[in-house]
C-alpha cells in the first residue's frame, strides 16, 4: 500500500532522515519505534507532505506522494493524528470534527461518520459544543483520532498517541487503535512506548538517528537483545 524508499530529509543543515525505507501492507498495523529525536515524527510529516525529501520516493497505491501538494494527500486516503494532538483549541469539538472531513462533499455520510465518532467516544458527544482547548489530555487525543477518522482514511498515521496519558487511558487508546484497524483501516503507528506498540502491531521497525536499524515481526523484535536493552527496559 505504502512504500517509503531511501528518503533523505533535512532541516536546513540537519540531516534528519538518512536513506530511510519502510513498507506498510494494506490492512495491517505497522509500528515505528525509536527513541526521542530518532526521526519518527519527521517520517510521518514527510509521508503527509509537510516536509519534502531531498531524495528518495514515497509511493502510495502506485502514486509518488512527493509530487502531491500536502493538502491533497489527505484526499488520497491518508490522514494523520499528529504528535501532541494539535486539536484546534479555540474551536468546538464539533468544528474540529468537521475540519477532519474538510475535503469531503458527501454531507450525509459525513453526518453519519460524526455520529459514529460520537458513538465511539461518548465523552466527545457530551462536549460537542465545548471548545477543544477545554478538554482533558485524553479527551483531546480522542478528538484528534476522531478528527482523523472523519476523513475516512484508508491509511492512518498516528504519532505517539499515548504520549502524556495515564496508563489506563493508554490501554484504552491502544484498544481503539486495534478496533479501528479491525474495521479495515491500515495503521502506521509511531511510538516510544515499545511494549504497547509491539503488542498490537503486525510488523515493526526500529529507527535510530534517521535510519531503520531493525525490522521484523513484533515477536522477533521483542526477543532481540538490542530491543530489550534499548526500548523494553532490560
Amino acid at each position: 500500500m505504502l512504500q517509503v524508499k531511501e528518503i533523505d530529509v533535512y532541516y536546513g543543515a540537519i540531516h534528519a532522515l538518512k536513506k530511510l525505507s519502510l513498507e506498510v501492507e494494506q490492512g495491517k498495523i505497522v509500528t515505528l519505534i525509536g527513541a526521542n529525536g530518532a526521526g519518527k515524527t519527521t517520517t510521518l510529516k514527510t509521508i503527509s507532505g509537510l516536509l519534502r525529501p531531498a531524495s528518495g520516493t514515497i509511493t502510495y497505491k502506485g502514486v509518488d506522494l512527493t509530487r502531491v501538494p500536502p493538502e491533497k494527500i489527505v484526499g488520497m486516503g491518508i490522514s494523520q493524528v499528529p504528535e501532541g494532538r494539535r486539536v484546534f483549541a479555540p474551536m468546538t469539538v464539533q468544528e474540529n470534527l468537521e475540519m477532519g472531513a474538510y475535503l469531503r462533499k458527501d454531507k450525509k455520510e459525513v453526518q453519519r461518520d460524526m455520529e459514529l465518532v460520537f458513538e465511539r467516544f461518548p465523552r466527545l458527544k457530551e462536549r460537542r459544543k465545548q471548545l477543544a482547548g477545554t478538554l482533558s489530555g485524553g479527551e483531546q487525543q480522542m478528538l484528534a483520532i476522531g478528527r482523523a477518522l472523519m476523513a475516512r482514511p484508508e491509511l492512518m498515521l498516528m504519532d505517539e498517541p499515548s504520549m502524556g496519558l495515564a496508563p489506563l487511558l493508554v490501554r484504552e487508546i491502544f484498544e481503539i487503535i486495534k478496533d479501528i484497524n479491525s474495521r479495515g483501516t491500515t495503521i502506521l503507528l509511531v511510538e516510544q512506548n515499545a511494549h504497547m506498540a509491539l503488542s498490537i502491531a503486525h510488523k515493526a521497525y526500529v529507527v535510530e538517528t534517521g535510519s531503520i536499524v531493525l525490522e521484523g515481526t513484533p515477536e522477533q523484535l521483542m526477543n532481540s537483545e538490542e530491543v530489550k536493552k534499548a526500548y523494553l527496559g532490560g
Binding site: 509537510l50 500536502p70 489527505v74 484526499g75 494539535r86 484546534f88 474551536m91 475540519m99 474538510y102
Partner: peptide, 19 residues
C-alpha cells in the same frame, strides 16, 4: 472555519486538506 483553523495551527490545517 478553515480560516480559523489556519490561524490557529497552519500545519494541522494542512493535514485536514485545507489549502
Amino acid at each position: 472555519k478553515a480560516m480559523r483553523a489556519v490561524s490557529v495551527d497552519r500545519e494541522a490545517a494542512v493535514l485536514m486538506g485545507i489549502s
